[in-house]
């Protein structure tokens, strides 16, 4: 009887939900949130005759919702020993290996949500044109990937207060940046390069975070 946990099983052990369920739930919430608030805003703007603001708003609310989702997924799941459940998790058959798989699973959820929500927004955009370009979505994807790595690194900061300040700063910057970004019309070569780096940085930051966590948090 030597079964090792899959990523989804590890996530289920710690949270009670599988990777699939977490992805669907969060993506669904994200869309519901974005569509609902955008619809309300669109109705208000249309009635006021200022429809040129709608695309800005949609990009704003979408980006903030996405950022909040990533903040939640990549800022938590620490499970210190003192917190209820901490000792149980540490006594399971796979111990830290199980924790590692859980964190990797949650990271996967974050990336899946990113891809699905962007894809969904792009499709929605084609059906209901709100004046954003395909290039903008690519830029958004790349920036979000950097944000994921950034949040991973933030979890290693010993000063929890400073980490939270930086998280809020990132959220605010997201809001400010979003309205500007959606005007990009073409993807340049250096965008692709930045994207490649962002893609590499995600697993790298994840591995560094896990190594740090094991050394300073798991068994001390």
């Amino acid at each position: 009887m030597n079964k090792t946990l899959t990523l989804s099983q590890a996530v289920k052990l710690y949270t009670g939900s599988s990777i699939g369920r977490l992805t669907v739930t969060f993506t669904g919430l994200l869309f519901a949130q974005t569509c609902l608030t955008s619809l309300i805003f669109a109705v208000i703007s249309w009635s006021e005759g200022k429809t040129n603001r709608i695309s800005d708003f949609v990009s704003l609310i979408f980006q903030i919702s996405l950022m909040l989702t990533h903040l939640f997924l990549l800022g938590g799941y620490m499970f210190p020993r003192s917190v209820p459940g901490g000792k149980f998790f540490r006594s399971t058959k796979e111990g830290f290996a199980g924790y590692q798989k859980m964190r990797t699973g949650v990271l996967l959820v974050a990336i899946l949500i990113l891809v699905l929500s962007l894809g969904g927004m792009y499709l929605l955009n084609m059906a209901v044109p709100i004046g954003t370009s395909a290039a903008a979505y690519v830029i958004l994807l790349i920036v979000s990937l950097y944000m994921i790595s950034f949040l991973n690194f933030l979890q290693m900061l010993p000063d929890e207060g400073l980490a939270n300040v930086l998280r809020i700063t990132a959220l605010v910057l997201t809001g400010i940046f979003s309205a500007v970004r959606f005007t990009v019309q073409r993807v340049e070569w250096w965008h692709w390069l930045a994207g490649a780096v962002a893609l590499l940085l995600v697993p790298l930051s994840h591995l560094i975070l896990l190594r740090h966590y094991r050394k300073y948090f798991w068994n001390t």
């Binding site: 946990l5 052990l13 009670g16 149980f88 399971t92």
Partner: peptide
Amino acid sequence: TIAASMELGFD
């Protein structure tokens, strides 16, 4: 949830 997690956590 305890039953589900115990099942995953041990053989």
